[in-house]
Design a protein around this nucleic acid. Structure first.
Length: 649
RNA sequence: GCCAAUGUAGCUCAGUGGCAGAGCAACGGUUUCGUAAACCGUAGGUCAUCGGUUCGACCCCGAUCAUUGGCUCCA
């Protein structure tokens, strides 16, 4: 995880297609699907993998070399046990390494790990030297053809003419490899195999599936142990685990995969986020709209979703005028909100005086994500987006974009996000009119403006050419789940193409029709993913304003006057809309505290005879322990202030 | 969608080709207590679903569903 942004980006692979309809030959823009924007609220485009130069490879740090060498040692061991295995590649990764094999007669399973690791240990103990040699292209080809290593033969073709074709050998194992490695196998002192997985050859699903073995390696056993411990820690923060423990959300087979049920405590998180967004957006001059969940097929033909996006949409429902109606009207569940908002723009005549028009909606969308892609709350099929579309004139554009960006930063500060990456995606001028809409001046102008906004805000960002949406540049905010997966949590996109497709116009001061520019933005992404991320970010220990259980009043015993005093406190808090419960039972105070701590109740007010007599409460805060006896009024005032100010603690 | 692993009480998990188990939670009592577990009892299960093998299947086999780990996808 210590990888720099640049390194991380370089590892990502790219398989985007804006273009290339099936069998369509030439490159031309995808239909201007409004939906495209919305989806990028959800998903990160992957970044292009560029073949590393030999210079870059030389800069591999020690840990990466260890891991790269560990991959070779793994392959050495596997070939000793299964000599018929075909080899693909075995690079270091962010937190370890893998090696891809094609092995017909055997499916790797974790049961094989002990055996493979034993063999790897032998290789390490043999302390073989990693010896580099150079072959000509023909020699290399002949060598691998002789061994039947067909993947290696194909990989040879990737090496540019003029670049040396190098091999590394340790013991009996020889691999096509640009290096670098550690000096000897004995330098790989701490490693562990982690999991097996399938991986398509060259990442293309049309290619054969290889068996991939993942592992990790460190400089020494201590660092390995520490990393394994951290992985355990991460598992405890997993939003799926905490969500179950805290009763935040649930899935049910009868409801369907990827369709979360928000339980009352999770519903609190939803409500609080919406409250935050509505206040923030109101202050920023947004107006709220609402659009239906189902929309006629015609709309998605106009937006361009059909037919290209159809497979990511739930299949349509058909309305027949009569049982044998040959032309039923089809309705689709909306996969995004943009088309509806465009129609709201179009619903009334617009003047330049109406702009900027900022239409906001926490819209419910449905997407038929592939079954294998679903992941807790992070990737779902029903989602609610913190969506808005800002329609404005070119003159207003920079200011609007800037204030959207500020809204992001305000949110991130509020939640204390530190580890995120803003990725600025721009166009490639050579692909204007193909991958990108042919508006060279608008591209340049808006990209310069976006870049300036980012520079002015002094936040870290990376700029990635050729990754913009076809209709304009954009900023994606990338975060990482505790499990290490990367997600787009928020997005801010410029659109100077789709409003035209919808025929949206406003009257200028000169009384001419002009097409507005549009900004698609979702700083809080979707409830599902954002809350999933928040759960992990806070490890379920939410600040008071967000905490599903804000306050619990615990009595020491159930003596009636004591319970009465405690109930009065709870009622006063509830009157101020604090989520408070009373625990008046006969359980021992230790037991009550244990249960409150376990369910992550933020503030516990312990009430015994002494507190009652003094008009006080004993304050205890989750994770902070007993904070002592304080006057009742003071504690209540502080609770209310903390909630109103959305304090961090 | 593809490959693999997993699926036992609300939760966390034991278990065996021959009557289905524990702790916590729930429920009923007893206990009247000072900052992370007082005690006793009760109830809770089509062992994911469907089919097969077997005298007998939670266990072995197959299919399906779901989850998880990857791959692919991500408009």
């Amino acid at each position: 995880m210590a990888r720099t942004v640049g390194e991380r980006l370089a590892l990502k692979s790219s398989r985007r297609f804006y273009l290339a309809p099936p069998g369509g030959g030439g490159i031309h823009p995808r239909p201007e699907s409004a939906g495209r924007h919305a989806d990028e609220f959800m998903e990160a485009p992957k970044l292009p993998v560029e073949r590393k130069t030999l210079d870059q490879r030389e800069q591999m740090n020690e840990l990466q070399r260890i891991r790269h060498s560990a991959a070779h040692i793994l392959a050495t061991a596997v070939l000793r046990i299964w000599p018929e295995a075909l080899l693909d590649i075995g690079p270091p990764t962010d937190d370890g390494f893998y090696y891809d094999f094609d092995l017909k007669g055997h499916r790797f399973s974790t049961d094989d790990f002990t055996r493979i690791e034993e063999e790897m240990k032998k290789v390490v103990k043999e302390n073989q030297v990693f010896e580099k040699s150079v072959k000509t292209r023909d020699e290399a080809k002949a060598y691998f053809e002789g061994k039947g290593q067909s993947f290696k033969v194909e990989r040879l073709a990737d090496i540019p003419e003029g670049e040396a074709i190098s091999f590394y050998q340790n013991g009996e194992f020889v691999d096509l490899c640009a290096g670098p490695h550690v000096l000897r196998t004995g330098n790989v002192k701490a490693f562990k195999l982690l999991r097996v997985a399938a991986a398509y050859y060259r990442g293309n699903e049309k290619n054969p599936q290889l068996q991939r073995i993942y592992g990790t390696a460190f400089k020494n056993k201590e660092e390995l142990e520490q990393w394994l411990k951290q992985q355990e820690e991460a598992k405890r923060r997993d939003h799926r685990k905490i969500g179950k423990e805290m009763g935040l959300f649930a899935f049910d087979d009868d409801v369907g995969p990827g369709l979360p049920l928000w339980l009352p405590r999770g519903g609190v998180l939803v409500e609080e986020l919406e409250k935050l967004a509505k206040e923030t957006e109101f202050e920023a001059g947004y107006v709220r709209v609402r659009t239906p969940h189902i929309v006629k097929e015609k709309m998605y033909q106009l937006s361009g979703h059909l037919p290209y996006y159809a497979e990511s949409m739930f299949p349509p429902m058909e309305l027949k005028e009569s049982p044998d109606d040959a032309h039923p009207t089809r309705y689709y569940l909306k996969p995004m909100n943009c088309p509806g908002h465009h129609k709201i723009f179009a619903a009334e005549p617009r003047s330049y005086r109406d702009l900027p028009l900022r239409l906001a909606e926490y819209g419910s969308c449905y997407r038929y994500e592939q079954s294998g892609e679903l992941m807790g709350l992070m990737r779902v099929r029903s989602l609610q987006m913190n969506d808005a579309h800002i329609y404005c004139t070119p003159e207003q554009f920079a200011e609007e974009f800037r204030s959207v960006n500020e809204m992001y930063l305000k949110y991130f500060k509020l939640f204390g996000f530190e580890k995120y990456l803003m990725r600025f995606s721009t166009h490639d001028p050579s692909k204007l009119g193909q991958k990108f809409v042919d508006e060279p001046e608008l591209w340049k102008k808006t990209e310069d403006m976006v870049r300036q906004v980012l520079v002015d805000s002094k936040i870290n960002f990376v700029e990635v050419a050729n990754e913009a949406a076809f209709y304009g540049p954009k900023i994606d905010v990338q975060v990482w789940s505790v499990a290490g997966r990367e997600f787009t949590i928020a997005t801010n996109q410029v659109d100077f193409a789709v409003p035209k497709r919808f025929g949206l116009t406003y009257k200028t001061r000169e009384n001419e029709a002009a097409t507005p520019l549009c900004i698609h933005r979702a700083p809080l992404g979707t409830h599902e993913r954002f809350i999933g991320f928040l759960i992990e970010h806070y490890a379920g220990n939410f600040p008071l304003w967000l905490a599903p259980d804000q306050v619990r009043v615990l009595t020491i015993g159930d003596e009636p006057s004591l319970v009465e005093y405690a109930r009065g406190i709870a009622e006063e808090l509830r009157h101020h809309h604090v989520r408070v419960e009373l625990d008046p039972g006969t359980d021992k105070i230790n037991g009550k505290i244990l249960r409150a701590e376990e369910s992550k109740v933020h503030t516990m007010l312990v009430i015994g005879g002494r507190e009652k007599d003094a008009g006080a409460v004993a304050l205890r805060v989750h994770g902070k322990g007993n904070l002592g006896v304080k006057p009742r009024a003071e504690v209540i005032a502080d609770i209310l202030a903390s909630i109103a100010e959305r304090r961090a603690g």
